[in-house]
Amino acid sequence: MKSRCKVGAFPREYATVDAHNHVWPDRDGRLDMNLVNCHLKMMPLLGIEKMVISAPVMTDRVTPAEFRKMNAMVREAMDISDRFIGFVFVDPNYPDEAAAEIEHCVKDWGFSGIKLYHQQTVDDPRQEPIMSTAARLGIPVLMHAGKVTDPGTIREQPRISNAQHFLNALECFPDTIFMQGHIGGGGDWFWNLRVLRGIKSDRYFIDIGGSVCDSMIVRKTIEAVGIDRVLFATDMSIEEGVGKLYAAKLSPEEMKKVCSGNWNRIAAMKRA
């Protein structure tokens, strides 16, 4: 099916990877097949070849039993389609169990990265076992992020990571690859880009996912961190992700970097 408007699918030569998306449980706690089918229907429609998926839990603490169950669900989706690239979700408050789960999911199930949520900030010392495991395996850490300003969200997510936490983490964990989640995930993105402006690290990446598609958001992100650090992603806001990347009016070479080239550089570092 072709778009009936002037904006349509990404060209096939971009080999686009959505670097941040999810699967979730249904009401019975099993993999939500309706969502899986929506993903698989949407991807060829919009020209998305592969999709990074994870299943984080948003409570303050997530027990090992809970995060193992979520990762098993991600594996189930990976078994359904090789379009899915699994990221393992863990809670740093359970360091030994988290490190073991990462090893298991990467070595036994072929997962390609780690997904962290707001249980601790990305630079917290309690992340050390996770970060050293990630570095050893050569896999990236994708962290939920945002500089939220409204009291309600601050109350709900007191340990959400912002750009400054990532700069700290790059120093604290000098061998780990970081992906800052969704510049459009809600929050003061101008503040984040102000902090990141001129960053030089080749271990830092940021994805464009999230529902916020403020005018100029992708162009400003690229201006701040450089084209080689920006990843295409949607984080469930599919058309928003595709549309705001088109709106940045990049050259085909730049589009290829954002759509897949930068992700491919990350994926090539995997040692497991």
Binding site: R4, D214, S215, V242, A247
Partner: peptide, 18 residues
């Protein structure tokens, strides 16, 4: 939502409606 928001996301939603 233009011009505060990018237009392309809304066009994609409209363009692919079955």
């Amino acid at each position: 939502g233009a011009p505060l928001r990018e237009v392309e996301p809304a066009l994609l939603k409209l363009g692919f409606l079955e």
